[in-house]
């Protein structure tokens, strides 16, 4: 299972890198979205995917899944959500002010 998930995360990284190397700003932001998906999936995979109950003590199970990676992912998700929304608004403002979303045309003098 871990091997399959690693391959999936790898595909996500490949797609993210490809999109982030393109010229259009929106494609780049979609790339960062895919990158953070890949990263979060990787944390989950790296924490181990053994069978076990959900981490709720009320379940009274004999073994639970590791709660720490889930907490880490939750933190990383909200952080990347905040950054992505800022990035999107910034891209919108930049499009309004500079009139282009082509990264090649967004050069300094």
């Amino acid at each position: 299972m871990e091997i399959l998930m690693s391959i999936v995360a790898g595909i996500l990284f490949t797609a993210a890198v490809y999109l982030m190397l393109s010229r259009s700003l929106l494609r780049i932001i979609i790339g960062t979205g895919l990158l953070s998906h890949g990263v979060h999936l990787l944390i989950l995979t790296m924490g181990g995917l053994k069978g076990g109950s959900v981490p709720l003590l009320g379940e009274k199970a004999s073994s639970y899944t590791d709660p720490l990676p889930q907490a880490l992912i939750l933190t990383a998700i909200v952080i990347s959500f905040g950054v992505t929304s800022f990035f999107l608004v910034l891209a919108y403002r930049a499009y309004q002010e500079l009139g282009t979303d082509d990264m090649d045309k967004l050069r300094g003098k």
């Binding site: 982030m20 990787l42 930049a94 500079l98 967004l106």
Partner: peptide
């Protein structure tokens, strides 16, 4: 506006790498 787009992109990528390293 122009420069902060690049600054944020670089830092988003480096943060993703940081989380990968932590994982």
């Amino acid at each position: 506006l122009r420069e902060s787009l690049k600054y944020i992109l670089v830092n988003v990528i480096s943060s993703a790498l940081f989380v990968i390293a932590v994982a």
